[in-house]
């Protein structure tokens, strides 16, 4: 009884550390798209670990907690994708360190040309950023 409480508490504590890291990323990232990345990925893992810790400590709640974890796994990437798409279509500026933007290029070209020259472009942008 006590050992499951301690094990669940340790798992839950690590999940809360991931939640704190995600919140710090939302505050400190330079760009809206970076904020979406930090805020979604880290908090998904953090919530999963948090609820798994509760499930270890209280085994009779496992079905409901499993339902909650599955719901968060399915809906969190969807909301982040919708946010990023809406931000890109309303023309929010990326940060200065952005190397390549595939979505703007594909909507410009309408798929008429293939995306062959990307490797050279990325290498050129990286060397330019290295000089800066």
């Amino acid at each position: 009884m006590e050992i499951t409480m301690i094990a669940g508490g340790v798992v839950s504590l690590s999940g809360s550390l991931f939640l704190l890291l995600g919140a710090l990323g939302v505050v400190r990232m330079p760009d809206l798209f970076n904020r979406i990345q930090a805020g979604t990925k880290a908090t998904t893992l953090g919530t999963m670990l948090f609820l798994a810790g509760i499930a270890i400590a209280e085994p009779s709640w496992i079905p409901k907690l499993l339902l909650l974890i599955l719901f968060i796994i399915f809906t969190n990437p969807v909301s982040s994708h919708v946010l990023a798409r809406s931000a890109h279509h309303t023309g929010i500026r990326m940060s200065d360190k952005t190397v390549v933007d595939h979505l703007a290029k594909t909507t410009e070209q309408r798929g008429s040309e293939s995306l062959q020259g990307d490797e050279q472009e990325i290498a050129a942008a990286k060397s330019k950023g290295g000089e800066r």
Binding site: M5, G9, L13, G15, L20
Partner: peptide, 17 residues
């Protein structure tokens, strides 16, 4: 002991909020 760990993780989540 175990309850203290859960309380600490709730406190850290509150700080993240």
């Amino acid at each position: 002991m175990g309850n203290m760990l859960f309380l600490a993780s709730a406190l850290i989540a509150l700080v993240a909020l």
